[in-house]
Structure formats: C-alpha cells, structure tokens
Nucleic acid binder design. Structure first.
Lengths: 258, 258
DNA sequence: TTAGCTCATTTGTATAGTCAAAAGAAACTG
DNA sequence: CAGTTTCTTTTGACTATACAAATGAGCTAA
C-alpha cells in the first residue's frame, strides 16, 4: 500500500486539530478508534465536525480501508459519529453524553450536572465469615470480603449512598486505607479490570438508615442501582447505590440492532 | 467460491436442528445473523451448543468467511455467543435473557417471569390542542396526538400501568380501535419503525391514581420508566410505565467497550 | 510421571481490491 | 426557469486471501 513516507497524506490536521498518531498497542482498528475517540471526547472536534473520509484516514494511518471502516463502524455503533453515503461522517451532537448506565463513578455524575463533588467514608471493615450478606457476593466463606459504606455529595448535599462489597482475592491491593480519600468506584476502576457487569434497578422506600444519610423521610421513594462486576468468572464487587428518587433519573439511549 | 450445489456442505443440520436458509432480505451478514439468532433465541440451540465453525458456515451459506465473521462478531457483541480461538463458538447461557432495558413489550416481560398476560384499556382519545402534556412530545399544536392509558396484568394482578402519547402523523394508521385489544407497545412495534429511543428511569411515590390502579398505597415507591422513540427526527411516541417498586427490577448487562 | 514441546484447529486481524447504493452537484432539456 | 438526467463522491457490502494468536491434544524427554 503506502509504504514510503512521501505517499502518506501530507496533512494530519482537521479543522486545526492534530489527529493523534497510533500508539502501537493492540489491533490497529482499536488504535484508530482510540485516536479518533480522543479528539471527539475531548471536544476538539465538536458536534457537526466532518470526520475525514475513509480514504483519507486509510492514507493517514497507512493501513487498509477495511481496517479504518471497522474503527468507524464501531464508533458509529456507539453513537459518537454518524455516517451517510456521499454526505460523509460527522460527529454527533450527543457524542460526549455517555448513557448514565455506563457512568461508573459518582464523581463523574456530579460533575456532569455541574455540582461540586464531595466524598465521605462512613464504615469500612472485613466482613465476618458468618455474615448473612456474604451470599450476595458468590464466593466461599474463606475468601475475605471488604464491606464499606460511603456517601457521595453534590454541593455538600447527599447525592448518593453507596454500600459496597469487595472480593479481596479479586482486588488484592485493596484495604480500607485508600478508601478514606478515594471512592471505591474510582479505586476499582483504576486497579481492577472487569469483563462483565450487571445492573439491577429498582425502586424502594428508604429504610431508616438510608433516610438518615440521604436526609429523606422514612419510606420516601429511592432509586436503587445494584451493580455487580466479574473478572472472568470471579465476582469482583457488588455496589448498591441509593439515590433520592424525586430528583434523579438514569438515562440511556438505544438503537435498533438491525 | 462455491457456485455449484455439489460443492456446498451436504449437511445443514447441527445437533438435529436445521439452520434456516437465508431469506434474501438485506445484507448477507444480517441474513446470517438472523438465521443463527433464530435457532438460538427459539432455544433450538440451548446454552453450550457449539456453533459451526466459520469455515463450515462459509460453505453452508456459500459466502466468504469475512461475511460470516461479521455476523458472528455482531452476535458475540450482544452476548448471544462466545468465541475463543481453537475452542470455537458456543451459545452462551444468557443468550435468551435480553436485558430488560430492551424489552419493548410488557407481554414479553410477563411471559418471561412465567405469568399469564392480561391487558385492559383504561382510556383513549385525541388530546386537545391546548393540553399541557403536549409539550412532552415535541410536536406543534396542529399535530394530533393520541393519549391513552392501559394496565398490563400478570396472572390477573396489576403488573404495569402505562401512559402513552402517540404522534398520529408518525403512526398514521393508529386509532383507538385496535388498542382495545392489543397493547400500544405491540401495535407500534409491528407498525411503526423507529431509529432511536431514550429511556429515563426514576423512582416516584405512587399518586392516588397510580396507587388505585396498581393496588398500592399512596406514596409507595414505584419504578417509573419513560421511553421516547423517534423515527429520524420525528417524535413517535412517549410511554410512561409504572411498576410497583417492591417486586420489580430492571436488569441489564454490560461489557467494556475496549 | 510430569514438564515441556509441537502440531492442528479455530478465531482474530489485516490487505487489496470490486461493485452497489445513496445523495449532492452539475449538466442538460423542454 | 423548472424538471430531469448524469456525474461524482463517499459509505456499504462483499470476496479472496494471508498470517498471527490462542489453546487443546498428543507426543517426547528428563
């Protein structure tokens, strides 16, 4: 294809923005995906920006069109870009809004609504071998489990109450110490890879304990999100997140799969 | 490639199940996807069944491996199958559990939990041009909107209360008549294509009206799902679904996108 | 026996093309 | 000038092929 430097596109700048080069890590199509996702998610290419054509990118990255195509289709399937024959490929207006289902971190959610984020650790410790809640994380009784509870604040007001179980064998470096300052979601995201996650969303009346922490009345409707993650077949963590139901909602976007 | 019938695979049966042939509609990779999704979703290939290899399917469908590959990757990305080099491709244990986020129809959800589905239309009519709720569906005041309310039952007990606005211009054949017997979700699914949908999920205390229909006490926590769909940029419908919060939950599965 | 090596199978990724479909732009015609 | 046709660009789909990576199975040697 394009082996010599001379044959490659001379310009690697679109609307004054330099497209990051490939980083050499993993499959080329994923490198291209990251490269383009970066300029889109940072806002360097705002909504409506025309993404270079497949042919241009093929030359720029010195690869084949199928490879570029795979990267672009993958971005399109997540709604970052829209593509139409002849018109070309453009950055969508909702490129930077990730569905709230995918927000893994309360700090993210607070920043998204423009609040000032605060964090308070309420409890933390190793769970006794005979505690009944052990069953919620399907590991045997010898495996140590950290149980902790914390509060996430937006502008000093309670935003989310978090109960969390962590399988210490899946997250060997975890102790209560880092959790004094950094939320378990952030710590786990940075330290433990996961391969699958499940959510269950329900509505429940606030228990006295929950009501106290969230400054609600007992029985007030709360939105409860439970998130379990696995690394392979090993359970990593269970998080249960309580939101005051009256002023929070989870949003998501869907497209037909055909 | 394989042009003559003789060169094609002689056998088109796996574990005694005939793989449906291509139906000729749309791209080949989507036809293959449908063909395989059919035998998986019907349960003909239960969890653990080994899907034929790409090479076999390439011969069976008389196409190229890349085309088969695209279909299989698309099924894998939705979790219907799992693929590993050398081991092959197998039907996953969760192939038939679609995330409840994607369940478009209460009858589906009731059948999934093994209940007997019932439907009752409560109200139906054209919304007045000056009704305040018109704003919820962003169309101008001349556009007629059907507003209706119905109850979905599981084993004769209230399962879900549905409020629904339908843009008549986007669904020209809609009237209150078919909605006597068939739920709006089913009717719309069968009659109006959509290109995008959004959900918002929240928890709310039951209003007197909701409490009466769902046989709850006023203020009891309910899970409320709002689903809006568009066809292109035209709003099609808004559905608001109320579930008794204590015994319902929405579930979903996620995988990392890297 | 067991640890390590080799081999075969299957998927994963990449290449280099081709033709088709969509749709805006330009040219043409009445 | 309005409507129609043709041209051109860009994405969509497909083919045929190649090599790499993963991994179970079987073989070999200490």
């Amino acid at each position: 294809m394009f082996t010599s430097v001379e044959e490659r596109a001379a310009v690697d700048v679109v609307d004054g923005v330099r497209i990051p080069p490939l980083d050499g890590e993993g499959p080329i199509w994923l490198q291209i995906r990251r490269s383009l996702a970066f300029v889109i998610l940072t806002g360097d290419w705002p909504a409506g920006t025309r993404v270079p054509t497949e042919l241009y990118l093929t030359r720029y990255y010195a690869t084949s069109r199928m490879t570029v195509n795979k990267a672009l289709l993958s971005l399109a399937s997540e709604g970052l870009i829209e593509r139409r024959p002849k018109l070309g490929t453009v950055v969508t207006s909702r490129a930077r809004e990730r569905p709230v289902f995918e927000i893994w971190d309360a700090a993210d959610a607070v920043h998204r609504i423009g609040g000032h984020y605060g964090y308070r650790l309420l409890e933390c410790g190793i769970m006794p071998a005979d505690a009944p809640e052990r069953g919620e994380l399907a590991v045997d009784t010898k495996t140590p489990i950290i149980r902790m509870m914390c509060l996430h604040l937006s502008d000093e007001r309670p935003f989310q109450l978090e109960e969390r179980l962590i399988n210490v064998e899946a997250a060997p470096k975890i102790t209560c110490q880092p959790l004094e300052d950094v939320s378990p979601g952030q710590w786990l995201l940075a330290n433990v890879p996961w391969t699958e996650a499940r959510h269950a969303i329900s509505a429940r009346g606030a228990s006295p304990m929950v009501a106290a922490h969230l400054q609600l009345d007992e029985g007030d409707a709360c939105l409860v999100v439970e998130r379990r993650t696995w690394s392979g077949s090993v359970p990593v963590t269970l998080g249960r997140f309580w939101y005051p139901g009256d002023n929070h909602s989870l949003e998501g976007r869907f497209r037909p799969s055909w």
